[in-house]
Design a protein around this nucleic acid. Structure first.
Lengths: 135, 135
DNA sequence: TATTGTTATACTCTATAACTATA
DNA sequence: TATAGTTATAGAGTATAACAATA
């Protein structure tokens, strides 16, 4: 597990540095990563990022002030606000990903077959928890 | 790379939650993780954790106040302070690791051979950067 | 009554700059 | 002069509690 910790540290440090080059914090970068998949309500965003809903208000406030995201009213439920990535926001997160040189080089050092093996193992170990925990 | 982001997000969330159960922040937990390998000077600690030296002062202050670490003068250089894990500190980080249920269950869901493959690939991709970047 | 999002508050993390005590 | 660690400061992240609007 120590190796997992070190690998994570390298990846996370790479991500944080790439985000900093865009004048974004790691939390702001992670938020953009989630929104890259599509719009999400404040509450969903907070749950996905495992933080309190009150944090999201501040994080989205700062991203919105910079024009990277936009709050939109939800048609179905007037309490809900959907957060949408602007073109500038999409560009920012894409730039961050393209600048994760250490991670990209590390993955590129593996053969295509090894990359697929790594992804398959990560998927089984970390994204199929429903089958294991029953939740 | 999206899968890497998700997998590490699961791991990091698991670590953060386990640290919170010990009333520790993620940064404090990460510091204990590094110190688990052995004592380290403030500056080395800051470099390992990729943060400014001034941050370490505050983080170590709070850990020391709780009796989890201790500052010791360095015999060779009177400017240097070595940070040492106390028995309580060792117990705290060991407890955190033992409580990372999601990660432990995920790894346990892989066969021994698959676990070794995963570790080997992570090692090649993330901890052999010296061969790739030349630094 | 319950839920969504916000505000107020307090503490922690973070980098920058300026400082001290060593080297 | 340079380095190790600290202090001061300001902005950002974080959880808790209380709140308004809506369901």
């Amino acid at each position: 597990m120590e190796l997992l910790s070190v690998s994570l540290g390298v990846y996370y440090g790479d991500f944080t540095a790439a985000a900093a080059r865009e004048n974004l914090t790691a939390s702001q970068g992670k938020t953009l990563t989630v929104l890259r998949r599509g719009p999400a309500a404040m509450r969903v965003l907070a749950e996905t990022l495992s933080c309190d809903a009150s944090n999201m208000t501040g994080i989205i406030d700062r991203l919105e002030k910079r024009g990277l995201v936009r709050r939109e009213p939800s048609p179905g439920d007037r309490r809900v606000k959907n957060v949408v990535l602007t073109p500038e926001g999409e560009h920012a997160i894409d730039t961050i990903r393209a600048n994760m040189h250490t991670t990209l080089a590390g993955l590129a050092s593996l053969s295509e077959a090894d990359q697929e093996t790594l992804y398959a193992l990560l998927e089984r170990a970390f994204t199929e928890k429903a089958h294991v925990s029953g939740t």
